[in-house]
Design a protein around this nucleic acid. Structure first.
Lengths: 257, 257
DNA sequence: AAGTGGTCTAGACCACCGT
DNA sequence: CGGTGGTCTAGACCACTTG
């Protein structure tokens, strides 16, 4: 088990004169520590973490300070609170969270879940573009996956997925096919890689030969191009994907704050 | 000034037996009350609200409870905290927040701000579609605005905006032209309508005659169609707009949690 | 120095879940 | 019932801004 050592409080704060430029409140130190614990696999996806009181004792702080650390981690979707039961490590391996990052909604409100149909899976060298986004050297090993997302009968999304090779060694089309759940839940259980956040870049493009074929639309038809960088703990990018969305009967939904 | 009356604490909580089905914690009652104060215009955009201590006394609760109410309002972008200075009512009338809801980013990272060029402004009866989204009767008065958004020389977005007529009486092309700031900041200062949140629906479409003309692209060219419902306090929809985005040199950026 | 938000504590009690 | 998260308090002190 990792060990928590708070910075000396009086060094960390302004003890009469000098304000530390690297000041970080206690609850944030605790949060950072807990993130490292998650990275280290001390608590696995779906597990309950120790109770707030227990952690308060362990870190030698008050319960309120632990709460604040957990609060932030919960709003960042790393932990999930359940009143009366405990606090749990977030997981994609949960029907309600299978497609946590998928913003596509059918026009008719039908909520039958999407189904992933893998097409190909191979090991390739990183192109300059992919290398840049994933923080790899050009030519470094990358797992390249293509797949379709179906809503009912319709193929609505064609994804081209690039995964950091070191983390996903041994990923095969076979494994992708046997997934009842989402692809991220496979990544989590089989490779110990948890996607925490992502950034998407959207544009409208004309369907090319490949994507039109996969989606069954005419070449030149407008498609929604969604480029996603997905990150694990510590904002480390581990996946980049290019998705072609057919928005004839679906739309991409976004909340603005 | 509105007056705050907390629900009787023992009635509100389970006093021995019955748990109130409408239980709402104190800090939420305070939050709701403060939102009503904002709606009532007690504190205007950009104003400082009373200090946490002052509010604690006024509401007869501890500072921590007031803090929690303000915390939520701050994360929902209704208030802005500034350490050492106070807590302020959020406003679109601030250079940093002019295009708070605009997710469009230039490929080259150029950050010269967008410029709004109004094209038309007229009073029209609500179509069934618009009436439904804005919660109006079909045929109710609606202000219809068309405008272009320029990034440098390029026209990148063509917007068709529908505004609840009752709230925006007297909006003219003239007034829209004289805006140095964003259109939402005009709405705020001239009409007292503050946009708090919005929901957007995105699709890829082919440019029609009108939008291709306005944006200077070929008919049939793929455009990003962004339909936005913007809401004021209490989630009341006050604006619906349809925007055609040319994504040749820009992309729509979205963070996923 | 005074005033504001930000952090932290220790303790009380409530709401919810399981046994 | 005991254990967990959720709310609330009263008070101390730190950090930032302004006069």
């Amino acid at each position: 088990m990792l060990k928590f050592n708070a910075m000396n409080r009086d060094n960390n704060r302004s003890a009469g004169r000098a304000t530390s430029p690297t000041f970080s409140p206690l609850y944030r130190q605790i949060k950072d520590f807990m993130i490292r614990s998650l990275e280290a696999g001390e608590w696995g996806p779906g597990d309950a973490i120790p109770s707030e009181g227990e952690l308060a004792i362990r870190f030698n702080v008050s319960q309120g300070t632990v709460r604040k650390a957990i609060d932030e981690m919960a709003t960042e979707n790393m932990l999930v609170r359940r009143q009366g039961k405990g606090t749990f490590v977030a997981t994609h391996n949960d029907p309600r969270l299978f497609y946590r990052f998928l913003r596509l909604v059918p026009d008719d409100g039908d909520d039958t879940p999407a189904v992933s149909e893998p097409v190909s899976c191979e090991l390739v060298p990183a192109s300059p573009e992919v290398a840049a986004v994933l923080g790899l050297a050009v030519g470094a090993p990358v797992v390249f996956v293509e797949r379709l997302l179906r809503f009912g009968q319709r193929s609505v999304v064609f994804d081209q997925i690039y995964l950091v090779g070191d983390l996903f060694q041994g990923l095969t089309l076979e494994k992708l096919r046997n997934v009842e759940k989402s692809i991220y839940s496979l990544f989590e259980s089989e490779f110990g890689v948890r996607m925490i956040s992502a950034e998407e870049h959207l544009r409208a493009v004309a369907a090319d030969e490949r994507s039109s074929g996969m989606l069954g639309v005419a070449v030149g038809e407008p498609l929604l191009l969604v480029e996603r960088t997905a990150r694990s703990y510590g904002n480390k990018p581990v996946e980049w994907r290019r998705g072609f969305y057919c928005t004839a009967n679906h739309y991409y939904r976004n909340e603005l704050g």
